[in-house]
Design a protein around this nucleic acid. Structure first.
Lengths: 104, 104
DNA sequence: CAAACACATCAGTACGTGTTCATATGTATG
DNA sequence: CATACATATGAACACGTACTGATGTGTTTG
């Protein structure tokens, strides 16, 4: 019990599913872009130089995994990270990758 | 500076590469299995019911990303997580996924 | 040195997935 | 109601990749 508990195979699958979604550069860029404040789909597409369709497709996947949530505001829909959980995770990871680089 | 720094596109790609590797159930199971103590390839294959070839393939990828490191001990090679960084990350994520489930 | 064991590597295949283009849905405005 | 705008969805394609089976490399032991 001193050591970390090894997740069940089911938990591992769920965890892997989340990692898999984070494992795409385009999706990660979208997530980081929505980290500080909610962003409209058009804003995401324009700022990240992506097609509107592509952004929508990725947001669909991220929504399905409860990683982001969107609020309609008139014609636009503003997406933000689903909860502090997700954003903390991203921020931590961003820090880790910086240390990794300094380490190598 | 109060907000989290958004990683550069290069950093994002590197980070995504790591997430992508973690985004496979088989690889995650291997990592968690090697979390507490170094494990030989044969042990991993037998305990996780995977072919030796498959385990070796995944270990190759994990090695390439500096997520694990292997030490030869006579005929066997024992793999363990590369550093505390990686293991902390896995443990944190495992906790998160548990909370997520409780949340939903 | 030869045989046996542990692990790595090499093709090959089946499948998933990121992207694009075209089209549909929903929403405000005249 | 028709038009324009913002987003979502569907089909199709190109590519990557997880897995298998056979073979190669390295290490001990007789």
């Amino acid at each position: 019990m001193s050591k970390a508990a090894i997740p069940s195979q089911l938990d591992t699958t769920i965890l892997a599913e989340t990692f898999r979604l984070l494992g795409d550069p385009t999706r990660l860029r979208i997530l980081f872009f929505c980290l500080d404040e909610p962003r409209s789909v058009g804003d995401i597409a324009a700022s990240l130089d992506l097609s509107q369709s592509l952004v929508s497709h990725h947001l669909r996947l991220l929504r399905g995994a409860r990683l982001v949530r969107g609020n309609r505001q008139a014609k636009q829909i503003f997406y933000e990270l689903a909860d502090k959980h997700v954003s903390d995770m991203l921020v931590d990871m961003a820090h880790h990758v910086c240390e990794e680089q300094a380490d190598d």
